[in-house]
Design a binder for these strands. Structure first.
Length: 262
DNA sequence: ACATTGACCTGAGAGC
DNA sequence: TGCTCTCAGGTCAATG
């Protein structure tokens, strides 16, 4: 689930729930999710601290601990956050549970355990180390930077959009939506697209992602012209009288309308 | 340089 | 009802 819009919603959720409360305890339930850090070190980094800020870069969430270090959360395919007081509200695949002094808990839940939890003193260098490109929603991201990063190579445009090293934050389903809204064939060669199509993709990237954030990433609340709520082969295209087809692009199932996307 | 495949994990849903 | 099969919104490494 968690692509840029979902992680942005988690960021706001964290901000509006767990901020500025003292952490009294942290419990870990799946060691494999820890990345380059031991349970002990993370435990001692968390205890006694408060979450004081939350930033997002691509699909990564950075939660500041007393403004001195960052808890880094990546959600894999199935991760999410939950804040609750009643232990009955605890979700079923908790990997990390933080207890606060007000009696509430914050859980990082990840059913398939494909996410990662880490710690860093410096967010910028962490991002750099991972080789991530600029965030897709970064206000500073200009068309020319976007073009330089995305419109090169012989690969397909959908793969380029999903490549976190080029632009961070776009995953399988939002790549499909962006290309559907831009009217571009997901298999088109990234390096062969003309200026107009690239501009359309750039514009739709911002538009689709911000629309998704506004709608809380609930597909049922997306505009009627969106393809995301209709991700099945044979579904009616929301823009023409054709129908949606499923194909594989870089191994990922891709839904698109062959009539609208050339 | 790029596409493809399989691996990492677990569970939901389809089909029988 | 229960079994088996396929698939899932992410990423990485190995292979062609």
């Amino acid at each position: 689930m968690p692509e840029l819009p979902d992680v942005e919603i988690y960021r706001k959720y964290l901000q509006s729930t767990a901020f500025n409360q003292k952490i009294v305890k942290a419990d870990f339930y799946c060691p494999r999710i820890l990345h380059d850090i031991t349970e002990r070190r993370l435990q001692s980094a968390l205890r006694g601290c408060r979450f004081t800020a939350a930033e997002r870069h691509g699909k990564h969430l950075f939660a500041a601990l007393d403004d001195t270090k960052w808890l880094v959360l990546h959600f894999g395919m199935t991760g999410f956050l939950a804040y609750y007081k009643d232990p009955d509200k605890q979700p079923s695949h908790v990997c990390l549970q933080v207890a606060f002094d007000n009696g509430y808990y914050l859980a990082y839940d990840c059913q398939r355990k494909l996410g990662q939890i880490s710690l860093t003193a410096d967010m910028e260098s962490y991002i750099k180390k991972l080789g991530m490109g600029p965030d897709a929603m970064d206000q500073e991201l200009s068309f020319s930077t976007f073009k330089d990063r995305v419109a090169n190579g012989r690969g397909m445009i959908k793969s380029a959009l999903m490549d976190q090293d080029r632009i961070a934050g776009i995953g399988n389903i939002y790549a499909d939506e962006i290309l559907f809204q831009a009217g571009v064939d997901p298999k088109a060669k990234a390096g062969r697209l003309d200026e107009d199509r690239l501009r359309a993709i750039f514009r739709k990237t911002k538009e689709v992602l911000s629309t998704a954030i506004d709608r809380q990433a609930h597909p049922e609340d997306f505009p009627r012209s969106y393809i995301i709520p209709r991700r099945q082969a044979g579904a009616a295209c929301p823009k023409c009288d054709g129908s949606i087809e499923a194909v594989k692009v870089s191994g990922r199932t891709t839904y698109y309308c062959p009539k609208c996307q050339k």
